[in-house]
């Protein structure tokens, strides 16, 4: 079932001479884990802003085409209405936490919905638990590490129980282990709660294994869309400059030299297993 559907979506920022996204038509299904990637400035972030109504309501500008998110026409509904369905987590954790304690930050959206205090308390505790940061509830956000801060940001979006969660390069400031923990939290939410997940990411090495759908954008347009395997092994993806996982790269190098593995690996485990077979038979 489609939870996001766009048709010929074109958007131009106020004062810009050319559109940032152009004729984007795509469908994202309920429960999908989507990786949205492409070179800097390709329109990924703008597309994310469309999904929760920041475009056009916050940024103004000119939006053409149709966009339905969780059954709502984005052009017709305010950002706060969409916020019940779509949560957006940004790249820099520092600029999306504004309270003086973690729990207060997580409660921010619920306070805006005027949720009664008792219920809010429960919801906040649940969100903190899901993000694995219950013990940080009363800490001031600025004393936390980047990884912890980003988990607070996830919890604060999760508290609103959205159907869709969009994360715009959530790990670019984190060390690899911190990044991996974030991806695991996101994956858990996707698999256990069925939250449709859209992850904007350059570091596909780490993120690829969680996704079932990859969208590659280039110059404001959707260039490629399909399963991770299809996309990573395609010549187009390489030409656009997608950072193909090393496991897939190794597959390609071997293939070029006449050794073809049975299928295209995306993760290191898959690559190791495929190689194991070849090595055994050799």
């Amino acid at each position: 079932m489609a939870v996001i559907k766009t048709n010929d979506l074109t958007y131009t920022y106020p004062g810009a001479t050319k559109p940032s996204i152009e004729k984007v038509s795509l469908t994202i299904n309920k429960g999908d884990f989507v990786i949205l990637t492409g070179p800097s400035g390709c329109g990924k972030t703008t597309l994310c802003r469309c999904f929760n109504g920041l475009v056009p309501h916050f940024y103004n500008g000119k939006l053409e085409g149709t966009l339905t998110v969780a059954g709502l026409d984005v052009a017709e509904h305010q950002i706060y209405e969409l916020a019940r369905h779509v949560g957006l987590v940004f790249q820099n954790p520092e600029n999306q936490l504004f309270a003086l304690s973690v729990e207060k930050d997580v409660a921010f959206g619920l306070e805006n919905f005027a949720m009664p205090r008792e219920e809010m308390r429960k919801r906040v505790e649940w969100a903190l638990k899901m993000a694995g940061i219950s013990e940080l509830a009363e800490r001031p956000p600025h004393e936390l590490s980047g990884g912890q801060q980003q988990r607070v940001a996830i919890a604060s979006v999760l508290a609103m129980q959205p159907d869709i969660m969009i994360l715009d390069e959530p790990t670019s400031f984190l060390d690899p282990l911190g990044a991996e923990k974030i991806f695991e939290v996101i994956n858990d939410l996707n698999k256990k709660l069925g939250i449709t997940t859209i992850l904007v990411e350059h570091r596909l090495d780490l993120a690829a294994k969680y996704a079932n759908h990859v969208i590659v954008m280039d110059n404001g347009k959707v260039a490629l869309t399909g399963s991770p395997r299809e996309i990573f092994s395609s010549e187009e993806a390489r030409l656009i400059g997608v950072g193909i996982p090393k496991a897939t790269k190794l597959y390609q190098h071997l293939k070029k030299n006449g050794v073809e593995l049975k299928s295209v690996p995306v993760t290191t485990e898959e690559a190791a297993n495929l190689l194991r077979e070849v090595l055994k038979n050799a």
Partner: peptide
């Protein structure tokens, strides 16, 4: 690497899995 919160590169991870060969 773990002590420094770093994970090995992907290629290394693959080769570590294949160490028995």
């Amino acid at each position: 690497l773990l002590q420094a919160s770093i994970v090995p590169p992907q290629i290394t991870q693959i080769f570590l899995e294949l160490a028995d060969f």
